[in-house]
Design a protein around this nucleic acid. Structure first.
Lengths: 199, 199, 199, 199
DNA sequence: TGAGTTAGAATGGCACCACCCGTC
DNA sequence: GACGGGTGGTGCCATTCTAACTCA
């Protein structure tokens, strides 16, 4: 199964999402994270710590058949053609987005592009959602639904544990933080939703 | 005076910064915000509400000499050459960045590019800084200083008022929010720092 | 039907409750408010304004059979014997109580006395409940339930409209206040609960 | 110095006032709180937590001369003779009252009784005053002044911290609440006024 | 028609609770 | 694990402004 993580804007948790999806899926079968980002953020990350799955540069992926799950972290701002290509070569396209107004508006503007994608091959993931009682995530969800864009039910909270995860180069469940488990649950929930979608 | 706002990543408050810099400077002299972003976020924003300054598409700026201050919002992810060009044609390059680890690491990676820029023509602005007692901003500041990158002393807080500002298409000081004035003070302080730099 | 309003403490909205119960019941049948309080608060109140029902001193109630509903406002701090007498001569004993800790503790202390009362002849009414998001009313409700004391489902909010009602000598629905209708709904709900209990 | 706290109605913060007056005065000299209330609220309170002063039942006060300050919490609804007796045996009579209309009217009705008291031996304390922008306290103050009744300049705010204080059995300054210090300042101010009156 | 009155909406300020975060 | 500081949302209250209605 090939999961591609792509977004039109940077700084939305794309790499974090790719890493933690790979971490979750590696519990279910041999997994690899393919780093296609220009910044090589994921490779850097893996070098800082100890990843429970393989992390390879996209040019170094020799034998995809070794893996049950491939998670691909793509460069930011793909062109329309890029996106279509990514969708064609993937089973599911995960599009993370923050829930601030600018991000949502930008995302809705790309509705045409996205709806050109085949069937239900993509879903949007809200990331960095502020805690209760903020309504930002709810508003974003509503706006995207109205625009007809498919959403994951799961959303990722904005927690300092994710920062520590990035700094230390370990998945968030390995971070020493009071809310590390809560943070990990978000991605576990996402992982379950992905696997459920597959069926 | 030409101020250019550019960043290597999206979703860092680039448009918000451009808008509020223009809003501050429009108090000091006739100002225009030139929207060079592909998403035309700033133009959209101005259409939603009532901006106290002109907002034009970059192709529509006929007579720059009419204005005392030009604030240019650029596309995300400029290439190195783009950046050099932008720096050459501007008096100051403002580079907003969030203070999360990925953003800071990405920024430091571009140190070489940035230090190729002439003199003290650019400065980094930390945006969306989490409130006390978070140390994220402090850590980011330290890391950037060590990398030799120049920073604005001012930093922008992460406040819901900025979200409302984006949604309503008005500068943050016109938003009905308990912390609107506090939010505006951040950009006032930035504006003062910019003007002070000029001298 | 004879409704008696009694409480062990003063200042809990006893008179307000008696007045508004009478006001509600007067819509359903001829009603009288019998003022047994030493302060003659209800009589004073009726003199200040225009009550839609009769208000008489307890010594002046000549012909109870004229009325379908009698609401009796009793003196504060009845003795145990008083209370038993009141219960015996009434169909229902309404015991208003604020939800502060002292009031609730004092009320629970009287559990023995209350449970000596015949059957389900009394119910406690929480009054002056602070607005959301306070949990005071919820805590009080929980404590009283644990003590086995019966509660009205309805509770009365703490609203300035009740103050104006007292000052002007009119039922709260006749007060010029943005929340007057909301305040009246509380007592309407109580009235419905009382009538429902009767059946 | 003997301070007596008495009121004609219950639920007005009588026990809270007695407790916090004793707490303040215990900073200035050895103090005791004499619980004369039938509910023994103050004794209960002291049992729940840790009071920084002695709390005794009125029948157990053996050696008053041990104390510099005696604060006496009296039963609710004293008769006129009781009141005169209390005033005679005290240096100052503190009469707490809420500022709702019923309470104020009831208090003014007792003007005759009160004015029969010797000289300036008593003062009224407004308690549970609602926050800005309510005018309830101002109106109450005005009405009482017109009736010629002496008032403390200090008034006690209605704050959730006082509830927590009651529940936990500790003075309000020991409560974990954002406004605990503000609440305590009210009673500090009252204490100062009392001491100042003494001279 | 014009002016005074009155009802409704918008505004500012505060209290309260739930939550996040660094420190002890 | 508890604490203190901070933010976000909700609700109440008084004031102000606006809109509509009454009455001369």
């Amino acid at each position: 199964m090939i999961l591609t993580v792509a977004s039109f804007k940077g700084g939305v948790g794309k790499t974090t999402t790719a890493i933690h999806l790979a971490a979750y899926l590696s519990q279910k079968g041999k997994s690899v994270l393919v780093d296609g980002d220009l910044n090589r953020s994921a490779v850097d990350w893996a070098q800082r710590g100890e990843a429970p799955f393989d992390v390879v540069d996209e040019s170094q992926l020799n034998d995809p058949s070794k893996y049950k799950y491939l998670v691909v972290d793509t460069p930011a701002r793909p062109s329309d053609e890029d996106l279509i290509g990514l969708a064609a070569s993937s089973d599911l396209l995960v599009i993370p987005s923050m829930c601030d107004a600018f991000s949502i508006v930008a995302l809705i503007k790309t509705t045409n592009t996205l709806q050109g994608l085949p069937g239900d091959k993509f879903r949007i993931l809200l990331t960095a959602c502020p805690p209760y009682p903020s309504k930002e995530a709810g508003k974003a969800r509503e706006a995207l639904s109205e625009a007809g864009l498919p959403l994951f039910k799961t959303q990722i909270s904005r927690l300092a544990a994710f920062q520590k995860s990035a700094l230390e180069g370990v998945p968030v469940f390995a971070v020493k933080d009071a809310r590390a488990q809560q943070a990990w649950k978000d991605y576990e929930s996402l992982g379950k939703e992905v696997l459920k979608w597959q069926t």
